[in-house]
């Protein structure tokens, strides 16, 4: 099967390959996989105080289209707000890369990864806020532990 030029460009020269610290509270991680083919894709975003995505990284073990889809996704994510990022659709990715029908699932995987990274970041942020807001849940526990 012939890959489009854009797929080959991303495959040979992928943008933003790498890892961000998963435990950093400003980082959201999406880890997704395709059950049919055994591809695995990790996509991470780093979100600034202003809610804008400062950095995005990916690591994908899969075919050229899966690598290209995640590479393109990280390029598109930088500089977007979380809401804007959530609007990226697999059809946009598939169109930009001219993916053939049998490779559409690779762009679906990339959209899943974006959504999952955003969700992870929001979940971490909510948990942090809850912790800061609802005063002292840690104190009584520690008191009990001392008894």
């Amino acid at each position: 099967m012939a890959y489009s030029e854009k797929v080959i460009e991303h495959y040979e020269n992928p943008k933003n390959v790498g890892t961000l610290d998963q435990d950093d509270p400003s980082v959201g991680t999406g880890l997704v996989g395709a059950p049919a083919c055994g591809d695995v894709m990790r996509l991470q975003i780093k979100v600034g105080e202003d809610g804008v995505i400062e950095d995005a990284r990916f690591k994908t073990f899969g075919c050229g289209s899966a690598i290209a889809s995640s590479s393109l996704a990280t390029e598109w994510l930088k500089g977007k707000s979380l809401d804007e990022a959530g609007e990226i659709k697999n059809s946009h990715i598939a169109e930009e890369l001219s993916l053939p029908p049998v490779k559409i699932h690779c762009s679906v995987l990339a959209e899943d990864a974006i959504k999952s990274a955003i969700e992870d970041f929001r979940r971490k942020r909510e948990a942090r806020r809850a912790l800061q807001g609802d005063a002292p849940p840690a104190e009584p526990e520690r008191a009990e532990a001392r008894v």
Partner: peptide, 24 residues
């Protein structure tokens, strides 16, 4: 059809990612 299976569990994906990274 192939692909209509449940999503892979996060533990499996994490494990696969680690193994593939070690292989790389």
């Amino acid at each position: 059809a192939a692909g209509s299976e449940p999503r892979p569990a996060p533990e499996l994906l994490m494990d696969v990612m680690e193994q593939r990274e070690a292989l790389a």
